[in-house]
Design a protein around this nucleic acid. Structure first.
Lengths: 193, 193
DNA sequence: CCACTATGAATGAAAG
DNA sequence: CTTTCATTCATAGTGG
């Protein structure tokens, strides 16, 4: 059975707001963004310079700038950085395993059946303040594209202290009450509610 | 085999297979929640009807109902709504800058009324199967869709006024930010890299 | 034509 | 609520 070629992968929606004139690229179908070499270059440069998670503003600006080379949208830039960062980390993590035992390297599959106080391990990255370890985070100050605090965050691998447990019941959603009650008849429409 | 959702669920059956996360049988529910078509449908309906931030109690009930279609927990519902809502907004924000200034607008009004055109819920392939089936409708007895309100709901979240929340850089965007230059080409400054 | 790979896109989960 | 992280889905591109 090979359903990989079947036409079921219609993927509803995704109508590309534009009128289909987006292919400024190599005759790309409007399926998904296909970055041009220039765009990739710029993005890569930015990434190399240290930009990991651009803010909305920067995404907008970058997007605007890159539109010069071809069709591109903000979300493309957003996804690009997300993916790049993720993949890099993914690779690093794969090769990592760092020093064998970190003592508390548990990485157990949390059983989130009854979330109450499950600890969340986190990488063994341990952020050493003021210590440049292996991450080549070179921030080229020469690349001041925008006045905004460009690349500040970098990869701040801070220890994720747990502290927020999801509560199914209780007084977790204290803020929800009275926030928006624009659907009073909810119980009505949904009997079970 | 309890294929309640038997049929052509192309996507179903994914269930994190092949990872060998043999911690404890795995098969059941390790990994993250993978909503079924029905679950998504119901959640979407609720969202569409205006529910955005369900209370703890509502989450509980929804979760209970949805558990019929498959494994689900309260927190899944909670997260679902949070994400859905957040992304609705995020989309709105990132989709801008699209109707840029390099092209003339052919449709003037379309610009305002096609915000959510962009990224519809696509959950792909599920629609195909979920529609023409005869099994899925089993518990829907209680889930009767009401006559939607006259006013266009789901868009009543304009109460927010955030400073960072913004889009449309087109008009307010000025290249006079730096003393650098005034032309768009970004590569120029990045060329040194 | 089919398998594999790189990567764009999406989304569940969580942290802040 | 907002933003980020991790994992997965989907597809263009390429090799056999």
């Amino acid at each position: 059975m090979d359903e990989r070629i079947s036409g079921f992968y219609v993927k509803a929606g995704h109508v590309r707001a534009g009128n289909g004139n987006d292919n400024s690229d190599t005759g790309t179908k409007c399926g998904r963004w296909n970055p041009t070499s220039e765009q990739v270059k710029v993005l890569t440069d930015l990434f190399t310079s240290g930009l990991r998670t651009p803010s909305t503003d920067q995404i907008q600006k970058i997007s605007t700038q890159l539109s010069f080379y071809g069709k591109i949208e903000s979300k493309n830039v957003f996804y690009w950085f997300q993916n790049h960062k993720a993949r890099e980390r993914q690779k690093r993590r794969k090769v990592s395993v760092d020093y064998d035992h970190q003592k508390d390297l548990i990485r157990h599959v949390d059983k989130i059946s009854s979330p109450k106080h499950y600890v969340e391990f986190h990488n063994s990255y341990m952020h050493v303040a003021g210590e440049a370890h292996d991450e080549p985070e070179r921030v080229i100050e020469t690349l001041q594209l925008f006045p905004l605090n460009s690349f500040d965050d970098q990869e701040s691998e801070k220890l994720r202290m747990h502290g927020d447990e999801f509560k199914e019941e209780g007084t977790t959603f204290s803020y929800t009450i009275g926030t928006e009650m624009d659907h009073p008849p909810l119980d009505l429409r949904l009997n079970f509610l």
